[in-house]
Write a protein that binds this DNA or RNA. Structure first.
Lengths: 190, 190, 190, 190
DNA sequence: ACGCTCGGGACTGCCCGTTAAT
DNA sequence: ATTAACGGGCAGTCCCGAGCGT
């Protein structure tokens, strides 16, 4: 191995978080094992505790990381287009079959939602903070009479997005999954 | 201990399913352990496999059980009132703080979320079947021009209900949780 | 079910022993489970202890039963033919591919041998008694100058028979298995 | 505890295999429990899977180990003496009362018997490979007209050795056990 | 100081031989 | 002779922390 560059540790740290972010969304909190994760990051499991105090600390960090990524992706989807179309673009992006079929690279909320409510405060804080960001982004591209109204609409919109994706993923047959996705899109776009 | 009345086995079976249904929603699929579950039902782990072929079989049965209960509760909430108000009653019941704060006795979907999608086909089937029932009930009290439209609206409504409850539960502070709940209610009731 | 005939219990008892005898030789002492055995005899596992004091008692009885059967079959193989050919007939029967490939209906010694030495005295007694019978039968068709010599030859013959079958069954590939069988036969028949 | 000399892991690995080899012959494949084995090696069962992929993998390795040891011991017994006496020496060593009375340190074949045939291919392969070695060693000190004849004689000799030891161990009383041993020796030495 | 090797102990789902109550 | 339950045991996996090189 090359001698440790000063930024080496940070890079490793980030790689672990990044791998964890993917596996978390694919397999859930309990489905991720420290050993497997470290191996997929090219390390052995012993080194894990040089980077994180515990598995929980990693999960919390990975949560923040993913929420930030989600916010960024939503922003990007809404940014390129004219203001009026931005909300629609965002919804289309969120409720796409691609997003449904690739949880590992998508939004954490439908992927982990329920599990997060059972975890400790550190994880919930990390999650809540990201959630607020998402709400703000959606509110920004929501046309409404007042900012309060826009925020309220945004909350409901996010709820529908999340619920729709969740149901679509859990549905046993793909016909139903597609029907759910379509219904969600239709309802949000009037 | 007195055992073995003619209906004894059925009662025990139901007690186990019932306890599992609660723990399932509180702790998730992986969080339920056979030994702990049996103990909470007043038994030891040894007898479990006389009642269920596997843990998965139990979870599937518990899923059906809970979904049926949810459907029943939604029906009941919508039944007592005049047709036009039934949808509102149903929404109020689902998005109540009581429902948010007691996952163990509420709907499985926001309680288990993505975990359902990761489990085997038996569990997903059980869940999907119950989901269809819920869709039908909601569709019945949704005023719309055509049955197809009613179903589509119902799917979206359920998605919003589920997503709202999920977000409200995951939110770290209770102010946010209440705000989310209110926003969902407002959006669904126009 | 018909009301219990006086001999009913005996019949059931024998059926259990008979099933056990087959499964024992196929799967070994540890490989036989009481529940599975009773089910294969058409009963529920609870009734087992009305017939046998313990699993060990059953194994002992099944051992005697099988050893008796083996002795009988050896006798039969040696009986039909003229005295001089009887030893050969017996050897051919024992070292046949059919015997090698169907442990469930064959001799217990190569099927259980090593395991029996680890079991309790009841089982070992049952086994030893049967073993003496087998020695006697083989000695009877062994031409020798003195009875002592005949017995000694018989012991060695049985050892070779048993060892050959054991090796042939344990060999991973069937070519080797056949080679072993042939070598044993050749050695015993000069 | 002091850990982690450069060769530490190998030593531990070997210690586990070595303990397994003994217990295997004493208690059979099913009689060896991972937890008990590790404890007897001075460890806890948690570390087992850092050394072996599964219990089956360990058993296979232990089998190879024991067969190699047996081959070596047979070689050693045959080596010290003049060519003509080597076969006799080998037989004396195998059929000694010491070998009969200490299965834990002896040959696996009579110790495991039919259990080997019931295990998975990994174990059977390991066993078969060792068996071929033994055949070769015995063939080498078997005087015969052709190599084919020597091999055939060797197979039969091994079968008799194994069968004799198996019977001697299974016999309930020690008089019979000794008689069997003597008969086997007599037959093999003409 | 970073990372790896090695190990510890708790836990999970599952199965078994056995027995008390019916 | 059955139904139902018991309690101990199994192999396997997990998170985590000592001890040790580089």
């Amino acid at each position: 191995v090359t001698r440790y560059a000063p930024e080496h540790k940070d890079q490793v740290h980030r790689r672990i978080v990044s791998r964890a972010a993917v596996q978390l969304r694919q397999k859930g909190v309990r489905g991720v094992s420290v050993a497997e994760l470290m191996q997929s990051a090219g390390l052995t499991h012993g080194g894990f505790y040089a980077h994180f105090a515990s598995k929980e600390a990693l999960i919390a960090e990975a949560c923040s990381h993913v929420m930030a990524g989600t916010a960024e992706r939503l922003s990007a989807a809404a940014d390129g287009v004219e203001p009026l179309a931005s909300r629609a673009a965002l919804i289309e992006a969120y409720l796409s079959p691609a997003h449904r079929d690739d949880p590992g690279r998508g939004c954490v909320i439908p992927a982990l939602g329920a599990e997060l409510g059972r975890e400790g405060p550190a994880i919930r804080q990390a999650f809540s903070a990201g959630l607020q960001q998402v709400f703000d982004i959606v509110a920004e591209c929501t046309p409404a009479s007042t900012p309060e109204q826009a925020r309220q609409d945004a909350l409901a919109t996010v709820a529908t997005l999340v619920g729709t994706l969740l149901l679509a993923r859990a549905a046993a047959d793909s016909t139903l999954a597609t029907e759910i996705l379509d219904a969600g899109r239709a309802a949000l776009l009037n």
